[in-house]
Structures are given as structure tokens and as C-alpha cells.
């Protein structure tokens, strides 16, 4: 497993379009993908409801865990776009 800490630069945080893109990308990957807000408990990054419930806002730090660095790159890019 690989881990990445990302400061969310997306204006709307991990909601709306970024949330849908984030979950869509995680769901396509094999294996577990989790995301946590700061040092909170991780939730499945494949669950839109779990990700929305984290209520990640612009400027929050998230911790993503996944099996590959490529997937981490993709997810981090989504969290920083928009």
C-alpha cells in the first residue's frame, strides 16, 4: 500500500464534480482505496456517500491510501483541480 497526504485545492472541496470524479477513479481501480480527513478514520474512496460525509472543504488535508502510486497521482490531481 502507498499513502499520500494532500492539501485539497479544489474550490468546492471534495464535493460536487470533484467528489464524483474522485470516487469514479477509485472505483475503477482494483484493491482497497481509502481516504481520511486529516488524522480521522479512513473510509472507502469507492463510496460517494462516505466521501461526501467526510465533508472535505477547500484547504483541508486528506490522506489517501491505494495500491499504486499512479492511482495516488490521479486522485491527488482531482482533489487539486477546479
Amino acid at each position: 500500500m502507498a499513502e499520500r497526504r494532500v492539501k485539497v485545492e479544489s474550490e468546492v472541496g471534495l464535493h460536487a464534480r470533484p467528489a464524483a470524479l474522485f470516487v469514479g477513479a477509485a472505483a475503477k481501480a482494483g484493491g482497497d482505496v481509502t481516504v481520511a480527513k486529516g488524522d480521522g478514520s479512513p473510509v472507502s474512496a469507492k463510496s460517494i456517500l462516505a466521501v461526501m460525509s467526510l465533508d472535505v472543504r477547500h484547504g483541508d488535508e486528506i490522506v489517501i491510501n491505494a495500491e499504486s502510486e499512479e492511482l495516488l497521482d490521479e486522485l491527488a490531481a482531482i482533489a487539486n483541480a477546479g
Binding site: A20, V43, S44, L49
Partner: peptide, 16 residues
């Protein structure tokens, strides 16, 4: 479409 595809993701939510 953005709203409706987000709703589709909710219906397919694995945790749910």
C-alpha cells in the same frame, strides 16, 4: 447530467 450521474453513483455505492 452532473447531478444525475452523481445520483447514479449514490445508487451504486458499495458501502450502501
Amino acid at each position: 447530467e452532473e447531478v444525475l450521474s452523481a445520483q447514479a453513483l449514490m445508487a451504486r455505492d458499495p458501502a450502501l
